[in-house]
């Protein structure tokens, strides 16, 4: 790779449209939820799984969705953009479904899951976040397509 191509490569690599500008804050909040949900569900499942199996499994699923959304939003390209849209949509459906289920059948949720009661234990951020995420992804969709390149592994987000 000659020098010009290298400079170009660096410039493009640095510009993930979904992780730039206000999107950087979005990635930050997603990352916080990813870390919080992961560590919480690891503790819950390893120490008191029988206490609330359904809630803990749903929390673990939520944790995975948050990790995928964080990575996808931080990365560049149309493929990651699609992954981010899928993750945010899954998150929205999940929080609505689990939220409704926890209100209708509270006995199945003896302990708080991330998504129970629409995320009321987390300032309702779980229900707001995917809506903001999907809106942001819609706005950056055109730029994600133009910066798309052949699949490659880059180490930095």
């Amino acid at each position: 790779m000659d020098e010009t191509a290298q400079v170009k490569e660096t410039a493009i690599r640095g510009a993930s449209p979904t992780a730039g500008g206000p999107g950087r804050i979005l990635v930050t909040v997603y990352a916080i939820f990813a870390v919080a949900a992961c560590s919480r569900s690891i503790v819950q499942i390893s120490t008191e799984f029988d206490h609330a199996r359904v809630a803990y499994l749903l929390s673990a699923f939520a944790a995975v969705v948050y990790v995928v959304a964080t990575v996808a939003l931080a990365r560049r390209g149309a493929a990651w953009h699609r992954v981010a849209v899928t993750a945010c949509a899954t998150e929205l459906l999940g929080v609505l479904a689990v939220g409704t289920a926890s209100v209708v059948d509270s006995a199945a949720f003896p302990d708080q899951a991330v998504w129970s009661n629409y995320g009321s234990g987390y300032l309702f951020i779980p229900v707001i976040l995917p809506i903001v995420g999907l809106t942001w992804l819609r706005r950056t969709a055109a730029r994600a397509r133009t910066t798309d390149r052949p699949a490659r592994e880059s180490t930095n987000p």
């Binding site: 730039g20 500008g21 206000p22 999107g23 950087r24 804050i25 930050t28 909040v29 990352a31 560590s39």
Partner: peptide
Amino acid sequence: ASVVALPVGVWWSLGDRSRWGSGVLGVA
């Protein structure tokens, strides 16, 4: 988490030298 959060937040905020970097640090 209490001691790891800010160093990571500073690193991520410095990746965007605009107002949004400050926003990232604020969230952290």
